[in-house]
Amino acid sequence: MINQIGLLIARIAEEESEKKKAEIRALRYQINPHFLYNTLNSIRWLAKLGRTNDVDNAVTSLVQLLEGSLERNGVFVRLGEELDLLQKYMIIQEFRYDNRIELRIDCPDHLLNVPIPRMLLQPIVENAIFHGIAPKDEDGVIDIRVEETEREQIRIAIRDDGVGIAPSRMEQLLSTDGERGSRGMTNIGLRHVHQTVQLYYGEQCGISVASEQGRGTQVTITLTKLKGDHHVQSAAG
């Protein structure tokens, strides 16, 4: 009887772990079509304007991004590699807009090797461009600051100087109730990141959003230095 109970507990734990992994995969597949659609739309505008050299450079950057998004070496990637992919993503977006969008990154060298879930930062930067900076129709800046806290957590703050978010929308951003809103893709991107971080690192981690209309928005991701799949593996234990 004791052996049977032990086997049952082990099977439940394994099933729970597989369920969480499936949820993470579903979240990743939910955001990827959104990212690809907006990127291809940017390249389409370049082609319409006859900017053939820019189209070539944009397609090259897109290929590199797609290669980076593939999980050939697992779900996790070094933070330094993730930041390099963001630079390639910004090349595409700078082609899209006549106004200059500057990406500033401040990350200590010793944190560049910290593993994080692949393509975790791109949805937030994408939201900062499309819903923050683009609507103000002038130059914009996105600042990314990475730091280690006293609790050995990693905090990644992504701040833009865009139009900001209305207070009435702030409560909906991380809630599943916001899915059917007219700007639901913003919600999907933020929820994707929040839920992915929590599935890997636990409920003590995730994202927070602070915004002031007319002055910009800051999204802060909190995770641990440990590779987060240890939490998925032991979630049911």
Rank of each mutant, 00 (worst) to 15 (best):
Q4C: 13
I5V: 13
A10K: 03
R11N: 06
R11L: 10
E18F: 09
E23K: 12
I31L: 03
N32W: 13
P33A: 10
F35V: 10
L36V: 10
T39G: 06
S42G: 10
S42D: 11
W45K: 14
N53T: 09
N53I: 11
Q64L: 14
L66E: 15
E67M: 07
L70F: 14
G74A: 04
R78E: 14
E82I: 01
L83C: 02
D84T: 05
Q87D: 11
Q87A: 06
K88Q: 06
M90F: 09
I91T: 09
I92T: 05
F95R: 04
R96S: 11
Y97E: 08
N99K: 10
R104D: 09
I105C: 01
D106Y: 02
C107H: 01
H110W: 09
L111K: 00
L112D: 10
V114W: 02
P115D: 04
R118S: 05
L121V: 10
Q122L: 13
I124C: 00
E126G: 03
I129G: 00
P135V: 09
K136E: 12
E138C: 11
V141Q: 02
I142Y: 04
I144W: 01
V146S: 13
E147I: 01
T149I: 04
R151F: 05
E152T: 09
I165V: 04
I165G: 01
I165Q: 02
A166D: 06
A166C: 04
M170L: 14
E171N: 11
L174Q: 04
T176H: 14
G178L: 08
R180K: 15
R180T: 15
R183S: 15
V193L: 08
Q195L: 12
T196G: 08
V197S: 00
V197P: 02
L199K: 06
E203Y: 04
G206E: 05
A210S: 13
S211Y: 07
T224L: 05
L226N: 07
K227I: 07
G228S: 00
G228V: 03
H230C: 10
S234L: 11
A236R: 05
